[in-house]
Amino acid sequence: MKLTRTGAVLGYAAMILVGLVVVLPLLWMVIMSVSSTRDLTTLPLHWIPRQLDFSRYHRLLSLAANSDGQTFLFALRNTVEVAIGTTVVSFALALPASWLFARREGRLDKLLMLVVATYMLPPLLFVVPLYHIFSSLSLLNSPLALMIADSTVVLPFTTWLLKGGIDAIPAELEQAAAIDGASLWRIWLAVTLPLARPIISTTILFSVLMVWDEFLYAMIFTSDSSAQTITVAIADLASGRVSDYGLLAAAGILAALPAVIIGACLQRALVAGLTTGGVKG
């Protein structure tokens, strides 16, 4: 399939336009993060910084007591903790069921739909009861509480993705092993899980990304740097605590970086996951 000359010209023009729309806001964030506050509050706006100012990155990456950097880096640490915990727990809970959903397709479809449909429930629905539960268990302001709360979002999604991935693994392979007398646990370890490796990594990355994005629970259930996550830290900065746009931009860039790297790893999987995964569910 070849494009006509005008077709190619139009195509490239469209690509450049789309590229600019996506890149310009990102580029501006980067410029802001290294511009001086004076440049950023000059009218008319000064697009190119007169001198590069990396002080915000120093500030954010310092662990000095009670500094912005400490708040920020602790938030980063908490987010990683919550992301790992939520992912591991959701994965462990969802895997057996996903496998069954895949292998007993048809009979359990309604049940699967029920699980997936819980994704429709907004976090605001659970906030008040969860707050009281955590409060009575003395779990407020702990990463553990966030792991439990974030599972409300991650569990249905994990189940859905895993089920779709296991669907693609021929059941015959497992049956062959079963005839040899292997237990279900052994079959999983020897046959299913190795074959499901791509969908497992996709699921894990998606789950981490969802936790990285979570805001409401973190805002309500945490209160200080021992459990606060990165989105809360950023929202606090943005709500008038800091009038330095450069610092906001730098914090945003640093906090987004891990998510973007995960996103890049997911590029292929995103595609595969959504085109094959769960579609039939």
Binding site: M15, L26, A264
Partner: peptide, 27 residues
Amino acid sequence: LPLRGRGILRAILIIPWALPTVINAMA
């Protein structure tokens, strides 16, 4: 479409998608 450089555009498109909502809103 068979255009050169589409791999780059595709890679760039990942960034907004992966950006956490709160950071996008702040930006």
